[in-house]
Amino acid sequence: MGANSLYGPLDPAPDAGYVDAPPRMGFFTDTSVCIGCKACEVACKEWNGVPDDGFNLLGHSYDNTGGLSANSWRAVAFIEQPAVVPAGPVDALAEAAAGRSDALAEAGCGGAGTTREPEFLGMPGTDLPGRTPDAPRTDFRWLMMSNVCKHCTHAGCLDVCPTGALFRTEFGTVVVQEDVCNGCGYCIPACPYGVIDQRKDDGRAWKCTLCYDRIGDGLTPACAQACPTQSIQYGELDELRARAAERVEKLKDQGARLYGHDPDDGVGGDGAFFLLLDEPEVYGLPPDPIVATRDLPAMWKRAGLAGLAMAAAVAVSFLGGRR
C-alpha cells in the first residue's frame, strides 16, 4: 500500500490487493461523434435490468432523463448553443479602448467580433436570419454527451462505504455489490460527480458497474457495444488515453479538450473520461472534482496531532495540578 493511495496517480487494482491484475479497463466517451440517440441508456437498462426513471418531459432539449441516478446509469445531456450573438468587432474594440480588455478576449474565443452565450435560455430573439452579416446562424451548436460513472482512481464512494458493498474490481472499476449494500447512503455525498444514488423503493445504492459481469467474460459493456458511432469506446485505459490524445489533437480547433483523463487531477484520473467540445460546466460536469477523502490522511494526521496536543495538554494540566 502506497502512502498516496487516497490521492494522486496510481493503478487502483493492484493497490486494492489484486495480484497479477489485468490491465485497467475504462470508457473513453468522445462527445464529438455523439448523436444523442440514447442507445447507451437503453442497452444499459436492458442488460442490467435497471427500472425506468419516470415519464417526464423535462424541456432540457432532448434530455428527458435528467442526469445520472440510481435508475439511469447512462444519461445523455443535450446542450443547445444558440448562434453567436452579434457584438461586432468595432464594439469590442471600443470596449477594449475603454479599458475593458475582456471584451476582446471573449470576442476572440467566440470567433472574430463575437461573443457567445454558454447556454440556451429559452428567450425569444428578434433577429431574422438571412443574408445579413450580423446574424451568422451557422455557428449554432447542439452538443451531446453520454454521461456515466467515472470509475475514479480514488473513488470517494468506495472509500467511505462502511460495509464493503462498494469495491474495486480487478479491472480497476468501482462496483456496488447489491448483495452487500445495506442502503446506508454514505456513498451518495462522497461522490464528487453526484453519480451514485439510492433507489427509492429498496434504498440501496446503484450505479454503472462497467458491466462487471460482461467484462469478466471478455465482453464489451452493453452501452459501448450498442453505441452506433463509437462515441463510447471501451478498452484498456492506457490505450484509450493514447487514442484520446490523438483525437483531441485533431479536433483542437473545434475547442476539443479532455476531461477526467489526468492522473494528477483531484480524483487521480477517471476510468471513464471524456472528450468535450466546451467547458465541463456546459455539460453539467464539475470543473475540478476532488475526491472527498483526499484530505483524509492529512485530517488523520491533524487529528492525531490534535490528539497528541490534547494528551499533552492533559498531561500538562495534571502536571500543573500537581504543582
Binding site: 440514447k38 441508456e41 437503453v42 436492458e46 427500472p51 417526464n56 418531459l57 432532448y62 428527458n64 432523463t65
Partner: peptide, 10 residues
C-alpha cells in the same frame, strides 16, 4: 416500452 417511452414521454 418503458425504456423508450421515458426517453420521449410526451
Amino acid at each position: 416500452l418503458a425504456y423508450l417511452s421515458e426517453l420521449q414521454p410526451e
